[in-house]
């Protein structure tokens, strides 16, 4: 049955009517029109829907909107101001050509930012293990891994990363 849910999304207080079964990703895309967060598999495997909830990366297709009541949510739209400089992780994905079709990229970037906040200089193996929950069907991952390593280093040198 419908109820009102309130949370902070990209620093702004938001609220909306949801059903118990409304997924967080549906609330973000359909109620808030934040369509940067993608739905790929809808079975919590592909990671296209990764957002941050209270600073941790989660799959927003496998979380109910009501579970995010009172939480701070960050989406790809919140990483960098519209028209402004890209977030260092986004810039690294562009620089290293870490995308082809781009469908998985929002989830890849949000997942990578969570890694970079925990590990300032992840090794190639650590990046590959971390990306276990993010699937890309174009790139073969090689340039994504390079981008994440470079993006993490850029974040560590103070060029951004304060997304939550």
């Amino acid at each position: 049955m419908p109820s009102t849910v309130k949370m902070t999304v990209n620093g702004k207080s938001v609220s909306g009517q949801v059903e118990g079964r409304t997924l967080l990703v549906q609330f973000l895309r359909e109620t808030l029109s934040l369509t940067g967060t993608h739905v790929g598999c809808d079975t919590s495997q592909c990671g296209a829907c990764v957002v941050h909830v209270d600073g941790r990366s989660v799959k927003s297709c496998t979380m109910l909107a009501v579970q995010a009541e009172g939480a701070a949510v960050a989406t790809i739209e919140g990483l960098a101001p519209a028209g402004g400089d890209l977030h260092p992780m986004q810039a690294a994905f562009r620089e290293h050509h870490g995308l082809q079709c781009g469908f998985c990229t929002p989830g890849m970037v949000m997942s990578a930012v969570d890694l970079a906040k925990r590990n300032k200089s992840p090794s190639e193996q650590e990046v590959r293990e971390w990306l276990e929950g993010n699937i890309c069907r174009c790139t073969g991952y090689h340039n994504i891994v390079k981008a994440v390593m470079a993006g993490a280093r850029a974040m560590a040198t103070g060029k951004g990363g304060d997304d939550d």
């Binding site: 919590s44 941790r56 990366s57 799959k59 929950g133």
Partner: peptide, 9 residues
Amino acid sequence: IGDPQVRNR
């Protein structure tokens, strides 16, 4: 277990 996002939840 699973992947980082599953381990977070």
